[in-house]
Amino acid sequence: MKQSEKRGWKVTAVATLCLFNVLFFTGSDAFSASVDLKDFDHQGKKIYDTYDETPQLYMSADSGDRNLAVYYQRRQYPGSPPPIPHEVDLTFSGNETDCLSCHERGGYSQEFGKFIPVTPHPEKTLCYQCHAQVTTTEKFVETNWKSIAPPRLGRSFLGSSPPPIPHALQMRENCISCHTGPGAVVEIRVDHSARGNCRQCHVPAPQTTLMQEFVRKP
């Protein structure tokens, strides 16, 4: 039965989407000690503020060098602070303007010939607290580390509805920084950045708890 199924692929994209949808459930008793997310949405105003401050020209600029695969490859798990992928001064002295001079507002870097990704949390200025240098790619010993797959794209609940926000907003409350502008990863860059109120349509739905249906109290 060699090459059992193929041909008939004139469509642009076919995937075994049904298999993709197998959700993974962890033991539900683990939730007794889990933390509730009531503070989850407290940073909403920031989004509007940054939107107001970001020039239209910048948001609609079109270029992209990194892509989503690279974006996730740099992280140990979705949401972990990425190491610094370029060389930094040996002293890496912690002068806050060193990193933020580029990564606060983004733009084109002559030095690297690339558009600069923008940090969603420029108010945190001790950058090297979380972002490590890379001076070797050798491991000390091999590791059995595994993490989860990054959130899939296009997870709309209905055929054409706006997809929900698949990641936690902690440290990433600022949609503009990662989802618009030429520094943004092309797959997650929005084509309607002129509409500023992101969460008018996109609701936070990080996959940390099971979906609970609304039940009216009797």
Binding site: A13, V14, A15
Partner: peptide, 12 residues
């Protein structure tokens, strides 16, 4: 090779 089953296809 005994068999090959397609899991993803793309053509631009």
């Amino acid at each position: 090779l005994q068999s090959l089953s397609l899991t993803f296809g793309y053509d631009d």
